[in-house]
Design a protein around this nucleic acid. Structure first.
Length: 488
RNA sequence: GAGCAUAUAGCUCAGCAGGUAGAGCAUCUCACUUUUAAUGAGAGGGUCGAUGGUUCGAGUCCAUCUAUGCUCACCA
């Protein structure tokens, strides 16, 4: 860093302002290289960060990197003049520069810009960790890449400069979100915003973050879900609403969990969960095509095909298929016996719904690689879901499982206010008994439902996990720019 | 929350049995007007994560702490 401050001072001595205000960029690296036609000289102005320098005495080559990629610059003393060439001595890897020149192809075949003018646009004071690349048998081999995960997450800006695949993953994430937004807009849903700070948290089972409002001297929770607010808007008369929501859950962290994460929820009036299944499979197919150009996605050693339609299994069918055990219509005692036949240890306090969920989670879910809708869940675990139209003890709920992981969760939404009150009161009772993940009774939400909510289909989709799936990333930290870290 | 692992130069890593710390790239100086991991010659660069302990002597052994990674648990 001291060296770079000296170089900065030298540039100022030479009358060069190292932090000017603008530069008239006309072209970008990647399209320039891709559309280059031999023999054509195009005048260009490009800008970017210096990534390599090869100095040859009275001429030099260097690469600059812009948002699209890298392009080589050829700098000759005779062309840019004595003064500029002298100043170039104090340019470093990492500096951001602007180049006027014309395109050409070098002896070794690389499309480059022959500089006629070179400007410092921003002097970098910290050395960036440059990776060296070499082509071996047509494949790019990278040496000494900036690969320490802690540093990559703490200094994402450096990670993004140095690791192009990281930049690409986040572009894909943006593309994915754009595709969803376009899709939902095409269904005439309204994009809305609802409170992050909530006096009563609900809509999911999770521990919340707690905060305090000074002026009102009031405890507030960061939302664990936005479900109950979106339903209020359906009560209000919108036919469909959606929100990309940052939600916050005060739980452990892992490569699938970050304390704050992104969830898309959307609700559509007059529809049920059957409609939602069709909608989701068509959405996911569109996303895969838009982001990757194919419906095939690689997850670990598996190849997953997101082409619609997806297989549908009820939870009971799925359990039967993967364990050979019948769970439909069984009592809690019989289910407990089934679990012990499967060598599954259970907490003696849990009820039959939870037992089924445990069996499913242990023996079925990890085996569902191709996209599969699992439908018709036990009522106990779904306090916001409408009772099944024909099966007692079940609700109209589905989850989509891909590569052994849940990617979304949807219901025919419960709109019977009396039933809803009973279910939330059961939840509150559970909470009284020490289940701090059970929901509380949100009286205002109940009041809203009491005014009448149309039959509605609703869904929650974890955007981070969906991005992981679509981009083939193995850690949620690789799809969140600034994952939660302890301070250095 | 538990187990395992990691922490040495700007980056990526080595360091044998405890004996004054090493490589490649990056940096600096010189040479070089089509190079591309440019090349050739030379030089500088370190609180070995922190704190304590054992020892004549600790990067190395022990303990504690901190941060991170992986796995598990928790978590729709």
């Amino acid at each position: 860093m001291r060296q770079r401050r000296e170089n900065l001072a030298k540039l100022r001595e030479l009358g060069i302002e190292p932090y000017p205000y603008s530069f008239p960029v006309t072209h970008y690296a990647k399209p320039l290289v891709e559309t280059f036609v031999d023999g054509e000289k195009t005048d260009v102005a490009v800008a970017g960060r210096i990534m390599t320098i090869r100095n040859m005495g009275k001429a030099a080559f260097f690469h600059i990197q812009d948002s699209t990629g890298k392009i080589q610059i050829y700098l000759r003393k005779d062309d840019v003049g004595e003064a500029t060439y002298k100043a170039f001595k104090y340019f470093d890897i990492g500096d951001i520069v602007g180049v006027h020149g014309f395109t050409f192809r070098t002896k070794t075949g690389e499309v480059s810009v022959h500089a006629t003018k070179l400007e410092m646009l921003s002097k970098s004071l910290r050395p960036i960790p440059v990776a060296k690349e070499q082509e071996v048998n047509g494949e790019k081999v990278v040496y000494d890449a900036f690969s320490d995960k802690e540093q990559r997450y703490r200094m994402r800006y450096v990670d993004l400069i140095v690791n192009p695949h990281v930049r690409e993953a986040f572009v894909k994430r943006a593309k994915l979100i754009q595709t969803i937004r376009d899709f939902l807009n095409s269904l005439n849903l309204l994009e809305v915003e609802t409170p992050i700070l909530q006096p009563v948290y609900g809509g999911a089972s999770a521990r919340p973050f707690t905060t305090h409002h000074n002026a009102l001297d009031m405890k507030l929770f960061l939302r664990i879900a936005n479900e109950l607010y979106l339903k209020r808007l359906i009560v209000g008369g919108y036919d469909g609403v959606y929100e990309f929501a940052k939600v916050f859950r005060n739980e452990g962290m892992s490569r699938f969990h970050n304390p704050e994460f992104s969830m898309l929820e959307f609700y559509v009036a007059y529809k049920d969960y059957n409609w939602m299944m069709q909608t989701v499979e068509s959405l996911f197919e569109k996303i895969a095509m838009a982001v990757n150009g194919t419906t095939i996605v690689k997850v670990g050693e598996h190849e997953v095909n997101l082409k619609a339609p997806y297989r549908k299994l009820t939870m009971a069918e799925a359990v039967k298929e993967y364990t050979g055990k019948e769970i439909e219509g069984k009592s809690e005692e019989e289910l407990r016996a089934t679990a012990s036949e499967l060598d599954l240890k259970l907490d003696p306090k849990i009820g039959s719904g939870k037992i089924i969920d445990e069996i499913f989670g242990e023996f079925v879910e990890p085996k569902l690689i191709q996209p599969t809708f699992i439908t018709d869940y036990p009522i106990e675990m779904s306090p916001l879901t409408k009772k099944h139209r024909s099966k007692a003890g079940l609700v109209e709920r589905f989850e989509l499982i891909v590569a052994g992981k849940e990617v979304c969760n949807a219901y025919s939404e419960l709109n019977d206010p009396i039933d809803q009150r009973e279910r939330l009161e059961e939840q509150a009772a559970l909470r009284e008994r020490g289940d701090d993940e059970a929901m509380g009774v949100d009286e205002d939400f109940l009041r809203a439902i009491e005014f009448g909510m149309p039959p509605t289909a609703g869904i929650g989709i974890g955007i981070d996990r969906l991005t992981m799936l679509i981009t083939g990333q193995e850690s949620i930290r690789d799809v969140i720019f600034f994952p939660t870290m302890k301070p250095e």
